[in-house]
Computed example of a mutant assay.
Amino acid sequence: MAITASQVNDLRKKTGAGMMDCKKALVEADGDMEAAVDFLRKKGQKVAAKRGDNEAKEGLIFAESKGEVGYIIQLNCETDFVAKNEDFQNFVKSILEIGIKNDVTSVDDLKKLQYNEKLTVDEKLVEQIGVIGEKLDLTNFGKVSATTVVAYNHPGNQLAALVGLNKSGSESEDAGRQVAMQVAAMNPLSLKKEGISQEVIDRELQVGKDQAIEEGKPAELADKIAQGRLNKFFKENTLLSQDFVRDNKMTVEKFLNSVESGLTVTEFKRFSLS
């Protein structure tokens, strides 16, 4: 049967596939719209199987605040060309909105949700692999809850952060935005030193001790030197102890207190492509 331009356009709007792919799917399905959608889904499964071992190092990251909660998503693809495509950007945002609407906290829970009446998010991802022709990987999804949550999206959307604060108000939000930028720039491992795992602490102590001995320091002083270097590690890698990037004469903790007494960060998340 003859396939009309209107049918092709309807399928394109429904799936996001290219015009030629839509026409081919409709021809294969004898004009049946649902069968054409299934044809494109099967194509996606075949492409996904072929590209499963490919590296997906490009992609997009978006963070969004909803006042007392914030959400952040990372969807990887293979090329920068796809990441910069407006349709791909809208696709990532559509998945983020589904996560927000359903208040999920993990990738696994997000993939199980309905993307539309027919497909789950996971199935829609497979379909889009066929449309785009690249491996797609929903790498990360997270949520932060606090009295105030601030989101920061770095230009280019390859890096984003969420920061939860224990107080509200415009001054707190502005301070939180500055701290979210600090999180993005300085990549702290945890909020405080108590959040650093014992495994990491033991490794840093051992490395510090080995370095001290290699530098010719007396063996009896190596442990003390290693402890000093561990304290430096804590300062550089825990958010509240880091030097504030906008004024390195104070720590992040002191900056927050200078804005409002008792103001602090309760939780943060940071996703980055690199």
Rank of each mutant, 00 (worst) to 15 (best):
L189V: 12
G176T: 12
V163N: 11
N187R: 08
D32W: 05
A151Y: 06
V200Y: 01
A29I: 11
F81E: 00
Q242T: 01
A48Q: 12
P218G: 03
N140C: 04
A219W: 00
D202F: 00
D108S: 15
I100P: 13
G176F: 08
Q206M: 06
F244R: 04
N187Q: 10
V259Q: 06
L263G: 10
S106N: 05
A219N: 11
R177M: 14
E55H: 13
N231P: 02
L119D: 15
G59R: 08
L165R: 06
L162A: 08
F91M: 03
K43Y: 02
L159W: 10
Y152W: 05
K209V: 03
E68A: 11
N102C: 03
V37T: 14
Q198L: 11
Q114L: 14
N166W: 01
M181E: 05
E214M: 05
L205D: 04
L119C: 02
E34C: 01
T251R: 03
Q45E: 14
F62R: 07
T147L: 00
H154T: 14
V207P: 03
D103I: 00
S258R: 13
V163S: 09
N90E: 13
A25K: 14
T4S: 15
Q206W: 00
E58N: 10
V92S: 07
N153M: 07
V265E: 08
D80F: 00
Q227H: 09
V121P: 14
E64H: 07
